[in-house]
């Protein structure tokens, strides 16, 4: 009995320590964003909103925000369209194309972004798309599509395809049957997939670093260049915004589905 209690305590202490390790760095970022001084220290000596005020005066950050938004929306649209249609096709017929497709979309996720970044940079320079928004959107799509695709595969595999037959049988053509019978039942999945695609684009930085210029740089890219020059709580402010956006996304996704399901989709 004594030993069991000891084991229990050890087990609990173990996972609580990891819990702290997982969340502490993010907490540090958020807390330091409210520091008054210009030096990065945790915990800060005094708190103020001075860096938040400064943020809204810096055009570089603001235009980076616009760029991130533009790239994020672009990635979401392309990745969701590609991922949903392909997953739908794969569900209809698990033929050879599907067998090729599944590993093919997965492999880019396992290749270090630095190598993808290099190969894409070289490629886009040749294609004349260097430093364009499009090049970043396409690179991010390469990473976001697999997630949409696998989320949708899982959603479609749980969908009762007899409903599609029933709609057709009752007179709905290919498009109307999809809109009336399939879409209402998978829209949560599509929404979560799209949300993930947006977040991935918003947060991705290695490929963006290799593919953007001063005029197309995204938030993480600006943050990176700033940090390499000097440690500035301004980065904490931006980071806090990004963390809050992810937080909101998780809450929305959790409402649309549930946390446990979401976790399994992300792996």
């Amino acid at each position: 009995m004594h030993r069991e209690q000891f084991e229990n305590a050890l087990f609990r202490a173990g996972y609580l320590a990891i819990l702290v390790f997982m969340l502490l760095p993010l907490a540090v970022v958020v807390v330091t964003s409210f520091a008054e001084s210009g030096n990065l220290a945790f915990p800060p000596e005094s708190y103020s909103l001075v860096h938040y005020r400064a943020f809204f005066e810096q055009t570089r950050w603001l235009s980076a925000f616009d760029n991130s938004l533009l790239v994020g929306v672009g990635t979401t649209i392309v990745a969701t369209t590609l991922g949903v249609t392909a997953a739908f096709g794969h569900e209809i017929d698990d033929g050879r194309a599907g067998q090729v497709l599944a590993p093919l979309v997965l492999v880019p996720l396992l290749i270090p972004p630095i190598i993808l970044g290099i190969s894409m940079r070289v490629y886009f320079v040749r294609a004349g798309l260097e430093a364009s928004y499009l090049s970043i959107v396409l690179a991010h799509t390469l990473w976001a599509t697999p997630l949409v695709y696998f989320v949708m595969r899982s959603v479609f595999s749980r969908f009762d395809w007899q409903l599609l037959d029933a709609a057709k049988d009752l007179g709905a053509g290919p498009i109307r049957s999809f809109v009336y019978a399939v879409l209402p039942n998978v829209k949560h999945g599509i929404f979560v997939g799209a949300l993930l695609a947006f977040i991935i684009s918003l947060q991705e930085f290695v490929m963006a670093l290799f593919l953007s210029s001063r005029s197309t740089e995204t938030i993480p890219v600006v943050a990176w260049t700033q940090i390499r020059q000097s440690l500035d709580p301004m980065v904490s402010v931006v980071s806090t915004f990004l963390i809050v956006i992810s937080l909101i996304a998780i809450v929305i996704a959790t409402i649309a589905t549930n946390l446990d399901w979401l976790s399994k989709q992300l792996s």
């Binding site: 009762d160 007899q162 049988d169 007179g171 709905a172 009336y180 209402p184």
Partner: peptide, 15 residues
């Protein structure tokens, strides 16, 4: 959808 048949499905397939 262009046929004048209607089906009652095995699992009923209600929306």
């Amino acid at each position: 959808y262009e046929r004048t048949t209607a089906t009652v499905f095995q699992d009923w397939a209600l929306f």
